[in-house]
Simulated scan of single mutants.
Amino acid sequence: MKKTIRHWLVRLHRYSGLLLSLFIVMAGLTGSALAFNDEIDAWLNPQFYHVAASGERLPVDKLVAVIEHDYPQARLAFFAFDADPNAPLQARLRPKKAEQVLAVDTVFIDPFSAAVVGERNSKALSVMPQNLMPFLFRLHRYLLLDKTGAIISGSLGLLWLVTLLIGVALAWPRHGNGWRQALSLKRGAGRFRLMYDLHRSVGLVAGVLLMITAFTGAVMNLPDVARPMVSSMSPLTAPPKSSLRSGDVRIDWQQALDSAQASMPQATLARIARDDKHGLFQIRLRKPNDLQDSGSVRVFVDAGDGHVLHSLDPLKGSAGDAFIGVQFGLHSGQMLGLPGKIFVALPGLLPLLFTITGIVIWRQKRKSEKLVRERRLHQA
C-alpha cells in the first residue's frame, strides 16, 4: 500500500470512527442485550410469558372479540404466538385514526381464559421492566425516531461497514509471517502500544462478525434501497393479491389459521395479521430449526374463501428471497440458536473497546504531531 494512500486511509478510518463512536457503542451494547431479548424480557416480566394452563385453548376469534371489546379505540394489527404453548398470546394494536396516540399498544392475553394478563406501550420512553426491552429495540433500530431513525441508522451502519473494511485493510499484515505479531500484545509495552495492539488484533479477529452485523442491519433498515438492488440480480417473490374487494372479509381469524396450518402441518404458528386492504391474512409459521424465533415461512390466505394463495419459504424461493430471508437470523444470531446469540452478543461489546482504544491512539497521535510541529518551528 503506497504511503500516500495509507496516510489518507488512516485519517479516514480515524475520523469516521470518532464520528460514529456514540452510535456504534449504543448499537453494540443494545444489540448485545437484544440478542437475548425474550430471555431478558421473560425474566423481567414473567407474566408476559407463562400462564397456568386450564382446559383447552380458546379459538382465536374469542380472543379477538375480547381485544376489540376492551380496546375500542384501537384495531388489532396482529397476534403473535410464543413457541411455549402455555405462554400468553401477544396482541399488537394500532390506532384507528392516524392522529390518535394509544396509551397501550401491546396486550398479553391468556389463551385458556381470555383474561388480559399484561399491557405495555412499546413506544414509551421508559426503562421500567415492562418497557425496557421495547425501548432498547426502538433505540437500537430506529434511534427512537421511527422510519426516519431507521434510515439514519441504516446509513450510519453502511459508514461503519466502510470504516471496518478500512481498518481491516490497514491492520492486515504486509507479509505472511506477520500474523503472529498482528494478533499478539507486546509484553511490557506502554499504554499507547497496548491500546494500539488491542485495537488492531481484536479488530482483525472480530472484524468479519462486526461487518456481517453492520451489513445486515443496513439491509433491514434500508429496504427501499436494498430490495430493488437485490431484485435486479435475483427476482423477489411479490406478495399475492386476493380478488376480494377492499374491506370485505368473509372468513374469520381461526379459519385462516387452520388453512395455513393445514398447508404445513409440521410447522407451528408464530403470527397472524389481517390485511383488509388486500383482502388476505398473512400467517407466519415457525419450522423446526427455523432461521429465526419469530418464524420465517409466510403463508397468504384469501380472506374471501380461505384458500392458500401462496406460501413463501425464503430458503425454497429465489436467491433473492433467500438473501432477504436470512438477514434477521444473521443479524440477531438466531439462525445458529444459542451459539449464534452468543456470537452476536459478545462482539456487541467490542465497539466500546474500539472507541476507548481509538480515542487513546488519536490523542497520542495528536500529541506527537504537535511536538513534531513545535520542534520544526523551533529549528526554523
Rank of each mutant, 00 (worst) to 15 (best):
L144R: 10
D252F: 07
D321E: 03
T355G: 13
H175T: 14
R250F: 01
L209K: 08
R200F: 11
R250S: 07
T357N: 12
S243P: 00
L330S: 08
D146R: 04
R92K: 14
F108H: 11
S296C: 13
L315Y: 04
G167P: 02
G317R: 10
I151V: 05
K316V: 04
L18I: 06
A218Y: 10
Y49T: 00
H278Q: 08
A150P: 00
K241Q: 08
V127S: 06
Q266P: 00
V202P: 07
L125C: 01
S311M: 12
L194P: 00
N45Y: 12
A91S: 10
T106C: 04
V101Q: 15
R92N: 13
I251N: 03
L280A: 06
D305R: 13
F135N: 02
L89C: 07
L156M: 03
L330V: 05
I359M: 11
L312N: 11
V249S: 03
W8R: 13
T30Y: 01
S246D: 03
E39Q: 14
L291M: 05
V208F: 15
L312F: 03
D84A: 10
S21L: 11
H69K: 09
R6V: 06
I359D: 08
R245F: 00
R193P: 04
V299M: 01
P111H: 04
M229I: 14
V205N: 02
A27N: 04
F354C: 11
A53E: 09
F112W: 05
N121T: 11
I356Y: 12
G333R: 15
A171K: 05
G17C: 04
K96C: 01
I356G: 13
D248Q: 09
P288C: 15
I5E: 10
P88R: 14
L145C: 02
G149L: 09
R271A: 00
R92L: 11
L125Q: 07
A124C: 02
V297N: 04
S21F: 08
H331D: 13
L210G: 11
